[in-house]
Structure formats: C-alpha cells, structure tokens
Write a protein that binds this DNA or RNA. Sequence first.
DNA 1: AGGATTATAGACCAATCGGTTCCTAACAGT
DNA 2: ACTGTTAGGAACCGATTGGTCTATAATCCT
Lengths: 200, 200
Amino acid sequence: MARPREFDMDEATERAMALFWSGGYEDVSLADLLEGMQLSRGSLYKAYGEKHAVWLAALDLYDHRVVQPTAAALSDVAAGSGLVRLARFLDAPAAAVRTGDDRRGCFLCNAAVDRAASDGDTRERVLSMFLNIEHGIRLALADVAADHGWPPAVVDKKAKTTLAVYVGLRVLVRAGTALDTIDTITAAHLETLSEIPQPS
Amino acid sequence: MARPREFDMDEATERAMALFWSGGYEDVSLADLLEGMQLSRGSLYKAYGEKHAVWLAALDLYDHRVVQPTAAALSDVAAGSGLVRLARFLDAPAAAVRTGDDRRGCFLCNAAVDRAASDGDTRERVLSMFLNIEHGIRLALADVAADHGWPPAVVDKKAKTTLAVYVGLRVLVRAGTALDTIDTITAAHLETLSEIPQPS
DNA sequence: AGGATTATAGACCAATCGGTTCCTAACAGT
DNA sequence: ACTGTTAGGAACCGATTGGTCTATAATCCT
C-alpha cells in the first residue's frame, strides 16, 4: 500500500445505500452516485470497479447495518418477551412513517422487486437476508410458543406469514398507503400471533 | 381520421405490459419497447406520445385485465363461498409459480416499489388498485363474517392484513422464495381468516 | 532521499438513451 | 379524382449512460 485512500469507504458505501434505497438501481446514475458519495470517478472505479459492485456493497452494508441487527433484536431474549420483540419488529414500517415521514420502505424489499429477478448476485443476497429475518422471527415466536404449547409446525407457519406481512407492509408504505391502514395491519397481525390456533 | 392505424393498440399495450412486468420501467428501453411491441418509432410516438405514457397505459391495462377481474371474482357470490373466493385469490401467487413457473410477481406490486415513490401518476393508480383489491377482499370476508357474526372492525382488519399478505407473497415469489414456503404462507393465512377472533 | 506503488481528478470514449423531424404511404370525405 | 389528414418508417438529434485512460499527487518502504 502506497498512497492511502482519502475517503472512508464505509461512509461512501453508506451514502450509496441511501441513494439506491430511495431510487432503484437504474434510477441512480453514476453521476448521482459520484455526487452523493462525494467521490471522483477515478476514486470510485479504483475502489469498487463498477456500478454493479457499488450496488452489491450497498446491499451488503444494509445486511450488516439493518438486517442483522433486526434479526438479532428479534432473537435477543434480554430485549423483552417474544411478543414484545415481534411487536417492535412489526411496528418498524409504521414507525418509519410516524417518526420520520420515511416512505422509502425497506431496501431489501425494494431490491427484491427491482433486481432480484434479473440479477443473480442480488437474488442470492436477498434470499439470504429474508431467511435471516425469518429465522429471527422464528426465535421470537418460539418464546411465545413455549407459553402456549404450540407445535413447531405452527411456529413455522406463523414465522413465514409474519415475514410476508412485514414485506407487504414495507411495500404498502412505499406506495403511499395511509398510516392508519399500516397501523391497523400491524396491530391485526400481532393479534393473530398471540392467538391460540384453533383446531379445525 | 384519415389513414387508419395498422396495429391493434390494445395488443401493443399488452406487449408493453409484458415487458414492463418482467423488467421495471428503467430496465425496459425504448428499443426494447419497439421490438417487443412490434412498432416503429413513429407509430409509437404518434400513438402514445412518450415512454411514460406507454408505461401508464400498461398499468391501466393491468388494472382492466387483472386487477378488476380479480376484485370482481372476490366479490362474486356465484363464484363460491367467501372463504373459497379468498382461497383462490390468495393461491394466485403460488399458482403462477406452480403452473407456469411465473416469478414475475404482480405488476401492480412491482410498480409500487419501482415507480410509485417517484412518480405521482403511478402512485395514484397503484393506490387506487390496492384499494380496489382491498374492497374485493372485504366483500368476500363479509360473507365469512356473516357466518361467524364478526363485527365490521374485524372484517376491516382482516381485509387489510390479507392485502398485505398478498403483496408480501408476490414480492417473495419475485425474489425467488421456494414454492413450499409460498404455499405454507398461503395456507396459514387462510386458516387465520376462518378462525374466530379471540377476545383478549 | 529516492524509487515503487497507489489514489485522485478530469479529460475522454463509444454506446445508448428518449425524443424529434421529415418524407412517404394510405386512407376518408367530397 | 382530388384534397386533407393521419400513420409509418427511418434518418437524425443532443444528452446522458457506464466505463477507461492518463497525468499528477501522495504516501510507504528501503
């Protein structure tokens, strides 16, 4: 290593993440990226190689900064009861709107729609992140299950459905759905999670 | 009207819809559009005016061809019991994969993520279509509610949550989620719809 | 101090973008 | 048959796209 890098690559990637989060992949041009990341063309290409690599770095950073902490919070028994942890998780989409008027949705969900279909690298990461979240949900639900004596199959069903509701909420928020609708869905699903499944 | 149009505009729009459905708005270039719609540049611009108008026409066609029939099927008492209609509706995401390996998801949901945030014309249409689907779900649920004596608030909560699950399913499908996971979510949510809500 | 190495900045690139223009072809109305 | 009007096709447009290259500056190592 001769001349050291003058910018913090993590900071730059974080800025790229913000850009890609709001717009999609194609919406953000290289010029947007250079301005937003406060980098010159040469620096960006030396550091990342190509636009696609910046995108993947941003996705990986989202994993590290958002997805993994979210999954960890869901799994953390010290953070409250299973139901409390699930409530916090499910309220995140509404909370983003409520506290910050943030309607960007979830970068992971956006990427799933935007790029996962056409880009294998993105798909791989998206599926892995979804699985991580599902795993966190499952652990939180396991706590609830212990109180009710639910069989593992019930936990599995509820965990996967909760993931779907979460994704749906994030997309509906991005689409501009009214906050009270988002709140209603959040509360309603949380209720079904605490209910005892009925034998049919 | 002097010289009549040589192509069927509805067919052309349908081809545009297919293109935009698979890729996003930005992913589909004008060249892609011309080839896919089998039109020359002159014809396209005479008929639509600009790329954005083709996109909106495609969205509107999706509304006509998919969303409205879906909402109508949910509302149609002759099509089966409320629960049967809901089951058909909720199974659509899984059925697309099962019968046609179709992982494009739902054009409406894709558009919600892709363009609704940045384009008001798209957002307006997306929100309206979501409301139409929610309305159809509500009507189907009203049938179920009648059998159980649910209050309107319960129907509302379940209708909105069902919309969220539907959107989540479509996105998960597009992301490449395994079919059995999709099936599990579909079945699980359907179960909660038929359950009697428990007083807490 | 000096040579090797690497970051930065900006000029530069072909290709592609969405869109316009213009000319000709084809029809409607009289 | 003639005229007015519109569709179709292709040439053409400037702007922007992602990406490369070169010259210079800054640092490390000996």
